[in-house]
Design a protein around this nucleic acid. Structure first.
Lengths: 188, 188
DNA sequence: CACGGTGATGTCATCAAGTGACATCGCGCG
DNA sequence: CGCGCGATGTCACTTGATGACATCACCGTG
């Protein structure tokens, strides 16, 4: 341990989220976050690449787990079913704390830059997913399509979950949404 | 007409695209673009909200046309078929000049910030689309799902079109991709 | 125990994006 | 002719982000 209180990264994360909630993302300066966390602005950028990234730190862990979940699925499973399994895992990771999810979502939806960052995280997951599906021997288009579709389903389901008044399970909502997609696409 | 050569906006657009191609997006400074266009950096920001937006100026026109296309579809049409009609219109607008599309895509794919912006444009279209579908009396989930799905199809198809070596029509590729999705979702 | 290395942080300088306030001046209108 | 408008320039400033170098508690080693 050095001269300083440990856990600077966590302190910065907490400081940022609370400040973003209090005054909004744009109105919060990096210097403010750093001050509340008891460090300098320069240190903030040693932990997070930019002001937005502080809200998306766990998403790489999420991606890893999601891809790991894919490994566990039998090779004979169809693309869409494999993707369903992945979504199930993602739901388990994200669906734990709805209050936290709501807070995050409130901040993110209130700012265009944050919405952009959120999207690219999902898309990055989609790309990785498609890649693994292709490695499983699934045809190129089908792999991309299944991956992109999973993102579509997730977005719709997540939004529903976050805004729901009752306490439905995210996993359930995702399954329902995927079913809806199946019937929708089958239609006509 | 004022003291200055007219068409500053167009000149800025051209200057920006060529510079982004020559040295890359990050290596290009707004001052460079402005200089090549024969104006000041301040003027650049009077035409474009930021350095990225210069590549996405037409996307609002695209969105308008897409939504207009939706109006032309009979009210009895299913959500997915309505969305298919919209995609057809989008394809007609975007699919004209593949060389230009390739240039744009080259620049965009080479930079994370631009990829983010591209995504949010599509998502904005998706949101608007879902909104109109809901206004047509289509159920909430189904509307969102159809809209998000259309984006998925478009992304897959567009990527395929841009990288294709033969000169397939974007509209055809989109139709094929949508069919693939139908069978994919119906599967099992 | 002194000493040097290391890692996390601070300090300072600098660049580039973006914005607000105000000046400038050709053009067209009354 | 003179006046106002609109497009642009000029200037000052804030903020995000990054590189270079200094600092110093801690740790191990001789």
């Amino acid at each position: 341990m050095g001269r300083w209180k440990p856990g600077a990264g966590d302190r910065l994360r907490e400081a940022a989220l609370s400040l973003y909630l209090e005054r909004g993302f744009e109105q919060t300066m990096v210097a403010d976050i750093a001050e509340r966390a008891g460090v300098t602005a320069r240190t903030f950028f040693r932990y997070f690449a930019d002001k937005r990234e502080v809200l998306f730190g766990d998403s790489s862990a999420l991606e890893e787990e999601a891809l790991a979940a894919l490994e566990g699925v039998p090779a004979t499973t169809s693309a869409l079913d494999a993707v369903a399994a992945v979504l199930d895992t993602v739901a388990r990771m994200v669906g734990g704390d709805r209050e936290l999810a709501r807070k995050r979502q409130t901040v993110i939806m209130a700012n265009a830059d944050l919405r952009e960052r959120e999207l690219i995280k999902l898309t990055s997951l989609s790309a990785a997913l498609a890649d693994r599906l292709r490695q499983r021997g699934i045809d190129d288009i089908e792999a991309s399509l299944a991956a992109e579709t999973s993102i579509a389903v997730f977005r719709v389901a997540f939004s529903r979950w976050v805004t729901a008044t009752d306490d439905q399970d995210l996993q359930d909502i995702i399954r329902q949404t995927l079913d809806r997609l199946r019937t929708l696409a089958a239609g006509r």
